[in-house]
Design a protein around this nucleic acid. Sequence first.
DNA 1: ATTATATATGAACACTTGTTAATTTAAACT
DNA 2: AGTTTAAATTAACAAGTGTTCATATATAAT
Lengths: 205, 205
Amino acid sequence: MSDNTMVHKRTGTKEKILKVSKALFSEYGYKGTSVRKIASNVGIRESAIYNHYMNKEEIFLEVAKDMFSSPFSFNDGEIRESAMKGKAFLHKFAMQYKLLTFDKYNESMFRILLIELLQNKDIREQFMNEFHNKNIKVLSEGFFIMMQNTLIRSSDPMIMSYEFLSTLFYIRLQITLMRYDSISTTSLSTQFEKHVDFFWESIKS
Amino acid sequence: MSDNTMVHKRTGTKEKILKVSKALFSEYGYKGTSVRKIASNVGIRESAIYNHYMNKEEIFLEVAKDMFSSPFSFNDGEIRESAMKGKAFLHKFAMQYKLLTFDKYNESMFRILLIELLQNKDIREQFMNEFHNKNIKVLSEGFFIMMQNTLIRSSDPMIMSYEFLSTLFYIRLQITLMRYDSISTTSLSTQFEKHVDFFWESIKS
DNA sequence: ATTATATATGAACACTTGTTAATTTAAACT
DNA sequence: AGTTTAAATTAACAAGTGTTCATATATAAT
């Protein structure tokens, strides 16, 4: 009963470390957050951290996992149903993306994760699998269904998804950067909607 | 004859520092490149660096400036002429972008600059002005001319440019990441062309 | 030759970093 | 109660950081 999976359940320190780390990493980034600072915010010494995690990176990777694994809320059946509505499907997808973009925690974490994305292979893999591929898959399914029902022109669903997703990403990046500098994003706030409008005009049959 | 602009011309050390820094920053990044390492590669002590640059950041900013200021080679007259050809204009633009993406130095530097983009306000401004705005401007002019000549459907040229540029950026990001991990990019190598094809189908009248 | 200036040096400052080792405290199981 | 094990502590390591300061050298202009 006390094997590898179910030990360490006496103090709840591990959970506290994760919670504190989330807050600190999202605010100060990976390099800006020291093990000492995590420890002191938890209320223990830095050496005690190593009773729960192998090293700093392991903590960060677990924080990142939580971030990427918050997926877009589309159940399997829901995709088909939603895709039949055509433009509304794209709109819903974009609005979910917009929500993430303007959410306080996701906003900071997006910036931090991008930094690490460019330096940490594990983060890159998480990004590719959990973000890129997963989204391309959902979108492709949607577009495929739309094509079947001749709501949109016939084309490669993967390419179409790529085109749709890439612009969402770029908008998010730009908004994130501007908000980080406290620059007003009112001029960009409707960019998501404009993207959907433009894109729909581009593909509708 | 010896005012602020034309002093410091005895040893050429400043130029050497810049050259060495370019190589080091592009390989090891900002934080991975210490002032001591730059100095030793130049062949001087770290303290001598400060006779030429105020601090480490000033060196990096100058390296970055060089990077961003390598603009797309479109002269004013050339845009009009090229835009009249419609799709070929987009193709040329995308191919220039592709060239940059697969150029050894630009490839490393793109990654490094993205990292700093997310942390350094000056880099962000350089990116917005020299990269984003400049490209949106060139593209907008092109699209505007195409619309005048009814080569493409009528729409907001700025939005259209945004849509076109954002995908190029995303492709570049993805290729950069994959090549950094030595993952084969053959599946993505024609993505630029596919983008142009898809986009042209989306806007042609 | 003397002065002025640019450029270099060596040494130090003041501080932070992730991680480990030996040891003690505290809780749970027998 | 005693034993086992988890979890915490104190202390140190070994290294690297950007930057500054007083000083020395070399070059160009006077």
